[in-house]
Design a protein around this nucleic acid. Sequence first.
DNA 1: GCAACATATATGTGACTTGCAACTAAGTAA
DNA 2: TTACTTAGTTGCAAGTCACATATATGTTGC
Lengths: 241, 241
Amino acid sequence: MSEADFLAGYDPAAFPRPALAVDLVLLGLRDGRPAVLLLERSQHPHAGRWALPGGFVGLDETLDKAAERVLREKAGIALAHLEQLYTFGALDRDPRMRIVSVAYLALLPERSFAEALDGEAPLAAAILDVPWAGETGGPVAALSRRGEPLALAFDHADILALAVLRLRGKLDYSDVAFALLPEQFTLRQLQDVHEAILGTPLNKPAFRRRMLDRGWLKPTGTREAGTSFRPAELYRLARPR
Amino acid sequence: MSEADFLAGYDPAAFPRPALAVDLVLLGLRDGRPAVLLLERSQHPHAGRWALPGGFVGLDETLDKAAERVLREKAGIALAHLEQLYTFGALDRDPRMRIVSVAYLALLPERSFAEALDGEAPLAAAILDVPWAGETGGPVAALSRRGEPLALAFDHADILALAVLRLRGKLDYSDVAFALLPEQFTLRQLQDVHEAILGTPLNKPAFRRRMLDRGWLKPTGTREAGTSFRPAELYRLARPR
DNA sequence: GCAACATATATGTGACTTGCAACTAAGTAA
DNA sequence: TTACTTAGTTGCAAGTCACATATATGTTGC
């Protein structure tokens, strides 16, 4: 925009602006299935429904910083892989006022996910039920521990659906999968992550070859402990994330 | 966010909000190279620099609608493929005040691109010089007609770089390329689009097979006109976009 | 009407990738 | 020592892709 256009068409004091928020999809794995951390809303609107942790963007913080703050304050998580997902701007997405929300995807290794659940924040885990294959897209459901679908607040079902879609799309050509694993992991664990996200079984030798040929993995020389059978080699990311 | 959190932590009247804008990457092809339409800024800040067309998001319009409006009002383009790219929220991206901008990618077929250039809006075309291969990523330059790099305003160089990156990534598995072509086109034209975006030559028979095997294309039965050699078959998209 | 020409379109082939099944290796447990 | 379970490997068929080559079909010039 030119400054003339700007001054002529928009007086920042005179025209009200949409509010700007960030919402976080806190995604991890539970029992080999994708899961998210949600907050139960106690007040209307959408009281009793489940919502993504979110917060407003301060004037003095970037979007990424706002997402980190929400991660810390609302979920009690110090560190996680965070990436911007999409910005949702429907007029009626929040009944109170116009709120535009920048959705972020946070990927939590199993341990962080469990710690966040046990922490101060009143978070609950919900299994993501994805009824479509590949990158078809479509709605997803968040299931309670008993397998019942949870009612989601606002447009958060759409945000969850997009999160799964994006993750599936990036899984094979990027290193996001490692954000869901501890620092050291076996190839089987890596395959389990891929299978959980994609929702389909993968061929073991082919997967192994592909991963090792990529050159991202470095064997540690140590093996996993505590198994009652042959322990697998532990790997780590060669170029740390 | 819970409503309690919301009311406790954020009084919409008391706390100032970032301004929210959309910026458009108007992308087309010129002489087999990717090109964008830019506006020269006449006022400070960044007077004399080149900027993406943009505008503020109204309280009563969605992000997509705001992008359509900018497309119409600032570029005089009635219709184009529009998709959200990324939301830029650095604190100092605009020296006047805090502005968060949702960047959109608009894809223009050659004809729309030329019409926009000849229209009312004072747009100029700039060739995109992409000095990296594949999806490496990195900075891009906008070149004037004489091949000199143009000084870009704000963080618009970053936005352009991301636009190229995204387009390259989506080119092969989505149908975005067709948004850069007229309704009817030859396979050679389609290949030219791919080569221009990717910045590398492609193998003809392989490209042809891949495209035809996808099942997206439908031969029209007619051929291109005006060639001084064997005219190629014209295709259209089977499932219109 | 006929060759020259330029490009469209099709075919053939070897290198590489992927999916699957069967195999060997290495640990625990009894 | 043997049974068992999972880790990790090997071999091969099917499919994909890049490249070279061959054929087809329009225009242009004579």
